[in-house]
Design a protein around this nucleic acid. Structure first.
Length: 435
RNA sequence: GGACAGAUGGCAGAGUGGUUGAAUGCACCGGUCUUGAAAACCGGCAAGGGUGCAAGCCCUUCCAGGGUUCGAAUCCCUGUCUGUCCGCCA
């Protein structure tokens, strides 16, 4: 399906000045992403663009000056026909140059838009998730094998994949009764914690966004196939990172107002186009799932500290739920397109006897801010700077539900205890049992 | 869905074809005054880019994209957004 485009090609993306001045640094950074040298191509395009621009500007200057003369002559009642013809002649060449400039600028911008963020030096090198580096572990993983979450849920009669498949196909689920409520309880608990204890402001954002918003957070143009188009103007959000971060798009915010901290509980929609065959059973990987998201907008110098803080906000949730987890720093090969550095929180799933991702916290630096032109200005200063943006799950609700089912499972009767912190949200219910 | 009206600098708000990058007010910065502050007064104050050692010079930008013209904030077309009214609707 084709979706209308609202992109302006004025976006800044990577800083050309930086690439011009540090071509090898830039190439090294792209090499860590598994890409070949980029700077030579970029600089060649940039140079030729500037050459065209210089020539064009000389002609524009000539046109402007001559046109002003015409104005003067005419206002004095003179005849300006001769110079008017002369200006007309310049226009042919100007048109050509304008066309060339447009072509090369758009090629350059498209190229830049497809290049990932430059990672921090302390991001470990590695090919894939196997080389992520453990930061720390918390809690004691249950070594006893328990059923997987979908076995538990189905046995309880509260989790139904077959009926969901009839109406929606694969990768959907129906939760009922206490499990439906458990999902709502988790979300509520997450939101209350982030708004009450972590200084986040609750936001209820649009779930449908246009392509320019997705360009800003860098899902587009490269990852269109992961998205669900909705109608001819919108996409369903793959994460509320998109609307929350775009709240500062095209804005100049006073520096003393920062940081902004936003949290939202929303459904997320992902086509999972590249995941055929992976996690096909159960709720791990769905086309639609709930997530509580945290987004921070900070001054440039504060983003690294904010990143640690955000990671701790997410970890707090798992600690409060008493779910064992480990935190890893993603290696270069596993770090997302827009991130300078990412921490993943992996929760212990006794049904799988392994840790699975339940939160991902990324510092994007100014990468997204450049793409959405989100700036800040220190009080009294003229010069604006790009803000830094961070996003993190706090945490994925569906996966948290899975973790609760498997970690709080009672093998004696197939029931599931309600975690202490969730009881108030479950009407005091102690244990979920078969209906 | 139909009808109309808008979109101009950080904000508000003039400007309908010719030195208008844009009056004015607010905000902001510097100064005078004051023991200090406020007020008042004086001055400054858009951004992005090209070029140059630099001072500077130049280009672009008045929602976006196309067009008319020697010349466009101003005229035309398309799109987006906002407001108002009508219809429909949870």
């Amino acid at each position: 399906m084709s979706v209308k485009t609202h992109n302006k090609v004025k976006k800044k993306m990577h800083d050309l000045k930086f690439i011009r001045e540090n071509p090898s640094t830039f190439d090294d950074a792209m090499a860590r992403r598994g890409l070949g040298s980029q700077s030579a191509d970029i600089l060649r395009m940039d140079e030729s663009r500037r050459a065209i621009q210089t020539e064009l500007q000389a002609l524009q200057q000539e046109r402007n000056e001559t046109s002003k003369q015409i104005g003067v002559i005419k206002s004095q009642g003179g005849d300006a026909q001769e110079i008017m013809d002369a200006v007309s002649k310049i226009k042919g060449r100007m048109g050509e140059l304008e066309e060339e400039e447009r072509t090369i600028a758009s090629a350059l911008n498209q190229h830049l838009a497809g290049l990932p963020n430059i990672m921090f030096d302390d991001v470990p090198n590695g090919a894939d998730e196997g080389e992520n580096v453990e930061l720390h572990k918390w809690g004691t993983p249950k070594q006893d094998q328990v059923p997987e979450h979908f076995e538990i849920g189905e046995a309880l009669g509260l989790m139904d994949f077959d009926t969901a498949a009839k109406m929606s196909g694969a990768r959907f689920v129906i939760l009922k009764g206490a499990l439906a409520r458990l999902e709502r309880a988790l979300a509520q608990f997450f939101l209350d914690t982030h708004t009450g204890d972590h200084d986040y402001t609750e936001v209820n954002p649009p779930l449908l966004v246009r392509d320019n918003a997705l360009f800003g957070t860098s899902q587009l143009p490269k990852f269109a196939e992961d998205l669900f188009p909705a109608g001819d103007a919108h996409y369903l959000i793959p994460t509320s990172e998109v609307p929350l971060t775009n709240m500062v798009a095209e804005q100049i915010v006073d520096m003393e107002e920062l940081p902004y901290r936003y949290t939202a509980f929303t459904p997320c929609f992902r086509s999972e186009a590249g995941s055929a065959g992976r996690d096909t059973r159960g709720m791990i990987r769905q086309h639609q799932f709930y997530k509580v998201e945290m987004v921070s907008i900070t001054k440039p110098e504060d983003s690294e500290a904010e990143h640690e803080r955000m990671r701790e906000c997410a970890e707090t949730i798992l600690k409060e739920l008493d779910l064992p987890f480990k935190t890893v720093t993603l290696c270069s090969g596993d770090t997302g397109f827009g991130a300078k550095k990412t921490y993943d929180l992996e929760v212990w799933l006794p049904g799988q006897q392994r840790y699975r991702e339940i939160s991902s916290c990324s510092n994007c630096g100014d990468f997204q801010a450049r793409r959405m032109n989100a700036r800040t200005r220190p009080k009294g200063e003229k010069q604006t700077q790009f803000v830094h943006t961070l996003n993190g799950s706090g945490v994925a609700v569906g996966r948290a539900l899975i973790a609760v089912l498997e970690n709080y499972y009672d093998p004696t009767d197939g029931g599931v205890y309600v975690p202490e912190v969730l009881k108030p949200y479950m009407g005091g219910l102690e244990k979920i049992t078969k209906v």
